[in-house]
Simulated assay, not measured.
Amino acid sequence: MSDPSGTPLPRDGGWAAYTDHSRRLSALLKDERARAERRAAASRDGLTAVDRLTHRVASQRQHLHQLAVTLRLPEPQVGGIAPGPISDPAEALRRAATAADAADAAAENAHRRAAQPPLLPGLTPLARNSLVYATAAILGSFASLLMFVISPDTNFGHIPWQLVPWSLCGLPALAFFAGYLTISLAGQPRIAGGGGTRSARAGGVICFVGMPILWFIFIAATRG
């Protein structure tokens, strides 16, 4: 028995072995094509992931430059990409994505902290400013009382009237401007739109009303 070309075909035992080897070869070729398709798909997915990561890093770089300008910090220096020791592309992409997530979290944390003032960031603006003005008023009151105590007129049992303008106007004004300057320098957020306020009206009440009241109470207590 022969095929149309005249080549003799193997007998039944040889034909069975031939067909068995053919099936095995076909299965191997099919598996190889499947592996090649999987490698091609993985390569395409890898290239897509690299493109996405490249665009993300470029956006992060631009965001960092803008954040540095907003926060009035030195411009960040971003160096080149050095080859790493990881040979598995999937693992390298996973670690790169993790690093990009960490960079985004750090930038968000920096932006959130910049939206709060350096001085007493946990307080509301009114509470923080009132505390600053009150501290300045207390220090001014101590200065006023110290001037009163060391005045020569006090030793003679007289009220040092020359100190009254300072105690009622001069020192309250100095305390107000000291508090206002402190809030302006350390009580304002470093980015625009952070809700910064100086509470000048509350500061005026604390300094120009509170300090004279304390002074009169002291005078009444010492003269009584």
Rank of each mutant, 00 (worst) to 15 (best):
R113W: 03
S141M: 10
G122E: 10
L126W: 02
R112C: 05
P121S: 06
N129I: 02
F148S: 04
A143H: 06
S144C: 14
R112E: 11
R112P: 00
T135Y: 07
A114V: 03
A127N: 06
S130H: 05
G122I: 04
R112F: 01
A106R: 14
A106T: 10
L123C: 09
L126P: 04
A110M: 13
L123N: 02
E108I: 03
T124G: 12
G140L: 12
E108F: 06
F148H: 14
V132L: 06
T124S: 14
L119A: 06
Y133V: 10
N109S: 13
L120R: 01
Q116L: 15
L119T: 03
R112I: 01
T135N: 07
R113E: 11
R128P: 02
R128I: 03
A110H: 02
L131R: 05
P117T: 08
A136M: 13
N129D: 14
L123F: 07
P121V: 09
L146A: 10
S130P: 03
N109I: 05
S144T: 15
P125C: 09
R128C: 04
M147E: 07
V149G: 10
F148G: 05
L145A: 14
L120M: 13
T124Y: 01
P125D: 09
P118D: 11
A110G: 06
S130Q: 06
L131D: 02
I138Q: 05
F148I: 08
G122M: 05
P118Y: 08
L119I: 07
A136T: 10
A137W: 01
G122P: 00
T124C: 01
L119E: 03
S130C: 15
G140C: 09
A137E: 04
L146H: 12
P117Q: 11
P125K: 00
L131N: 01
N109Y: 02
L145I: 15
T135H: 11
P117C: 08
M147T: 08
I138H: 06
L120Y: 00
G140R: 13
L120W: 03
P117Y: 07
S141D: 05
T135S: 15
T135P: 05
L123K: 00
F148V: 05
F148T: 12
A106N: 07
V149R: 15
G140E: 11
L131W: 05
S130N: 12
G122Q: 11
N109Q: 14
T124N: 03
A110D: 10
F148Q: 08
A114E: 03
L126D: 11
R113C: 06
A106D: 10
Q116K: 13
L131Q: 03
A107M: 10
S141W: 08
P118W: 11
R113T: 10
A136V: 03
G140I: 12
A110Y: 06
L146S: 10
S141A: 13
S144D: 13
